[in-house]
Design a protein around this nucleic acid. Structure first.
Length: 589
RNA sequence: CGGGGCGUAGCUCAGAUCGGAUAGAGUGCGCGGUUUGGGUCCGCGAGGUCGCCGGUUCAAGUCCGGCCGCCCCGACCA
């Protein structure tokens, strides 16, 4: 490609709305342009990188037996109603009515469609297992897109689906994806870890998220350096050490003026926060018989701990969970700031599983400026549900080995779900097994966001001058630059090289513009093509052309007659370096 | 959806407190010259519904009201 013809220019300054490096550089280098909140165009450079990423994904999926197909973006609501997700998913799914008044959706994932097809196609265990995938544009009306390509509303997604006779088969395909994902992320040179995750709207049993670790990430992760355990904070369990047992003392009301916070209360009472209990009031939306019911929930956990809303949502099987308003709290006869489950009726009380093991706590008395001393679970109040609803924190004990946990942040670049029979059972996708029994197909679902992955590549590989694209993902392999010469016609040489290199299959971005050297070098650095080939008089008098790696790992002066061969060699060197990082990884089970 | 910020040339920003005549700069873009190994220098030129609608006023980029858009924090989220 001739840069004089390229449809996008580099920007000297990034638009002011871009804050994170990947967003700024992808804009400046001309890979992307923004249309609206969470809506981006991929310019020719960006599109080429995106296609390369998608092809890396294709390679990895095909290698584990995947068959590429394509399913419709627009779905009739009917299938979504059948699985219930029409009702469960909120405003993030775009819906519309077609010309004859039918409800339609823009599919944000394709379990329904795959299951619908499977229902028609699959009759026998002999047709299983199967792995199908497609790479397609998705729209999710995210309430808050951010960070450039990291979190957008419209994006490309690879989603694959496995169909199996049983859980053993699913497990096998799940593990194959686990390995394939590491392989392909390695090929993109994006380091990542797999963490256990919440199943969220997908439903199902087991799920992992693949996380690129970075402070700009929006997921909080819990990691154990000792045993390697890792989990999304949303679901992370941890060791809760119960305080020493004590004789239950007499319940006592104490005057605690202005103690509306845990910190204030602990200070006033002269006790650690761990001796207090906090009461949090929420409204949970729960589906009962296809109807949404709002339930008033009182969550109780130790004063020094934080509520984990995902855990609570899952425990309640709630669709939605939000803090209760002061009015809603007052209506229940509860005093905000001094709330307590004691003596309150007609609410759903959920207690963190550490509370029953914590004797003589200080908690609210439902009366302004008063708390109870020596509150003991069971004796003084009861819960509808006792379970883990507290959030892991830095330093808490690892649930596997007890060592202190470390917190980190990450960007989710892929995920894998063991769905089981949720969709097949709901939609009647059954097959006849060996034993003559009709059984629901056991399914899995697996996603990757190529656009987000591109952002992570940029985030991981750049310097103060611009992008440093890995050879596997770069829009072109070689950036050819000529610098006008006084005696030598460097432009003619460059034109010839441009032809020669393309003839042997090298992808060349050729800067044929009449620009000053500084401009060309700066643009080359910004765009980040892995190899830069300069035709200039200075190097020619020193014996050849200048070939340089953008990542700083080598530069060479190459005689003109050897240039094509050398370029091919350097390209395959760089490809080999990356392929060497692809290795079997232990599946944690 | 709550809190905060911003909206003037392709991009980065002045101008707004205190209303006043053809709305500016840098960069980018076009033309001419100059220069040619890290964003040369000089000249000329094109480029604007000052986010939109309404109001106040003799007069609005500037004041008032409403709306829209974008960004950040939170809520939310495969």
């Amino acid at each position: 490609m001739r840069m004089s013809r390229l449809f996008s220019q580099t920007l000297r300054r990034p638009p002011s709305e871009a804050e994170i490096p990947s967003h700024r550089l992808l804009l400046r280098a001309g890979y992307i342009r923004q249309l609206g909140a969470g809506l981006f165009s991929h310019m020719p450079l960006g599109k080429r990188s995106l296609v390369k990423i998608e092809n890396i994904i294709r390679g990895a999926m095909d290698a584990i037996g995947g068959q590429e197909m394509e399913m419709p973006v627009v779905n009739p609501a009917e299938v979504w109603k059948k699985t219930g997700r029409w009702y469960e998913i909120g405003a993030e799914m775009a819906r519309f009515v077609d010309r004859v008044g039918r409800d339609m959706v823009l599919a944000m994932t394709h379990e329904e469609v795959v299951t619908d097809i499977a229902r028609q196609e699959i009759r026998s265990y002999r047709q299983l297992p199967l792995l199908v995938y497609h790479i397609q544009t998705k729209f999710r009306d995210d309430p808050r897109p951010r960070a450039g390509l990291i979190r957008v509303r419209e994006f490309r997604m690879k989603d694959s689906y496995t169909l199996d006779c049983d859980w053993e088969g699913l497990d096998k395909q799940y593990r194959a994806h686990y390995q394939a994902y590491f392989d392909l992320f390695n090929r993109c040179l994006v380091p990542c870890i797999a963490v256990k995750s919440d199943v969220g709207m997908m439903g199902g049993k087991l799920a992992h998220e693949f996380m690129y670790l970075t402070p700009i990430g929006e997921d909080s992760l819990v990691l154990c350096d000792n045993c390697g355990y890792s989990s999304n904070r949303q679901v992370a369990p941890f060791v809760k050490e119960a305080p020493p047992a004590e004789e239950a003392l007499r319940l006592e009301e104490v005057y605690t003026p202005d103690c509306k916070t845990i910190a204030g209360l602990a200070e006033f009472m002269g006790i650690p926060e761990s001796k207090t209990a906090k009461a949090i009031f929420l409204i949970a939306t729960v589906a009962e018989d296809e109807q949404d019911v709002e339930k008033f929930v009182l969550a109780i956990l130790r004063g020094d701990m934080e509520l984990n809303e995902t855990k609570l949502t899952n425990a309640l099987r709630a669709k939605e969970l939000r803090p209760a308003t002061e009015e809603e709290i007052s209506v229940k006869g509860i005093e905000p700031g001094f709330g307590s489950p004691i003596g309150i009726k007609d609410i759903l009380v959920v207690v963190d599983d550490l509370i029953p093991r914590s004797p003589n706590m200080v908690g609210g008395a439902n009366r302004v400026d008063y708390h109870y001393k020596n509150v003991n679970y069971d004796r003084d109040y009861a819960a509808d549900l006792i379970t883990d609803i507290s959030a892991a924190q830095e330093g808490y004990g690892c649930a596997e080995c007890g060592a202190p946990l470390r917190m980190s942040r990450g960007v989710e670049i892929g995920n894998i779900f063991q769905l089981g029979t949720r969709y097949s059972a709901a939609m009647g996708a059954n097959f006849l097994d060996k034993d003559g029994q009709l059984k629901p197909i056991v399914m899995g679902s697996y996603g990757i966001g190529p656009g987000r992955l591109l952002a992570c590549v940029a985030e991981e590989h750049h310097d103060e001058h611009g992008l440093i694209m890995p050879i596997t993902v770069a829009p072109y392999q070689v950036h050819l630059v000529f610098l006008p010469g006084k005696k030598v016609d460097t432009q003619a040489m460059a034109e010839q090289l441009y032809q020669d290199l393309q003839r042997v299959g090298v992808e060349v971005l050729y800067d044929d513009r009449d620009e000053r050297p500084g401009v060309k070098f700066n643009d080359a650095d910004l765009i980040g093509i892995p190899l830069r080939l300069v035709v200039g008089e200075r190097a020619l008098t020193a014996g050849g052309l200048e070939l340089k790696r953008r990542d700083g790992k080598g530069s060479w002066t190459v005689p003109a007659e050897e240039i094509v061969r050398t370029v091919l060699q350097r390209i395959s060197d760089m490809e080999a370096e990356i392929e060497a990082t692809v290795a079997p990884i232990e599946y944690p089970g």
